[in-house]
Design a protein around this nucleic acid. Structure first.
Lengths: 131, 131
DNA sequence: TGGTGTTATGTTATATTATAACACCAGCCT
DNA sequence: AGGCTGGTGTTATAATATAACATAACACCA
């Protein structure tokens, strides 16, 4: 039933939105299993795939984890800054940079379809602390 | 023994260099197991970690796979263009873009340490074919 | 020369992430 | 009702990665 799928997506998104740091599919599964003990991985992965497809969540490739998309149009490529100390992730938008990346990538005939841009480091708070 | 570790790294790098497309750790393990049946995953992962650390190989985060680093200084961040049709990967260098990315990432006090830039799409050959 | 600390490597086992494959059920058409 | 279709649930397992401990090599010094 389609409605149920949407419902699952909404639940998964809710869990992501409630989190301060990225969650793995199994983190989400663990949370939702409290209410629905029979929930299984494919259900979570399907919901996540749909959410990422819609731009309502991001997959963090370098961590195999997910975050809710916050604060910008859902069809734009986000630059993700990932704090390796506290785990927090921020989204940044820079259309020019994306444009330029597309240009660099396609210089030899390559046709870009999707960008992954993840920057690891320390967030302001953690950088401050370790000084 | 240190020499032996270096030898493993050299063997792993050799397998990567011989491949036209990214290999997973288990692909490499499968190849090297022919000569050394007792080889285990941690040995491969350790060699890969060292190679990536030295810039002699790249990890492709969005595929959980690895390629040998080809044709540029090993301490530069490469932009990887990944063909989703044939699997081929190319490395591109654009210092300005990296510089700009560092700038964007650090605008709110974030301190970047490592960049992941992967562009998915179709290589020139595959884009041509599917026209 | 052999003891002892230190670090790299080997090995076993297991944790974590992801998906294949099929079963089931609702809705829809006739 | 009967049968098709497509989405969802469910089971099982594949694929990726690492923890934890055992062992081996080397370095240093009494």
């Amino acid at each position: 039933m389609r409605t149920q799928g949407l419902h699952t997506q909404q639940e998964v998104l809710g869990v992501l939105e409630a989190a301060e740091t990225p969650l793995t599919a199994y983190d989400i599964l663990g949370t939702l299993k409290i209410g629905k003990p029979k929930l299984a991985p494919p259900t979570i992965y399907r919901a996540l795939a749909a959410l990422v497809e819609q731009g309502r969540a991001h997959r963090i490739e370098s961590k195999n984890a997910f975050i809710a998309c916050r604060g910008h149009a859902h069809d734009e490529t986000a630059i993700l800054t990932i704090c390796d100390d506290c785990g927090s992730v921020d989204e940044k938008i820079d259309k020019d940079l994306i444009h330029r990346l597309g240009h660099v990538a396609s210089d030899d005939g390559f046709r870009p379809r999707h960008h992954v841009i993840e920057v690891h480091g320390s967030c302001a708070d953690c950088a401050e602390e370790s000084k």
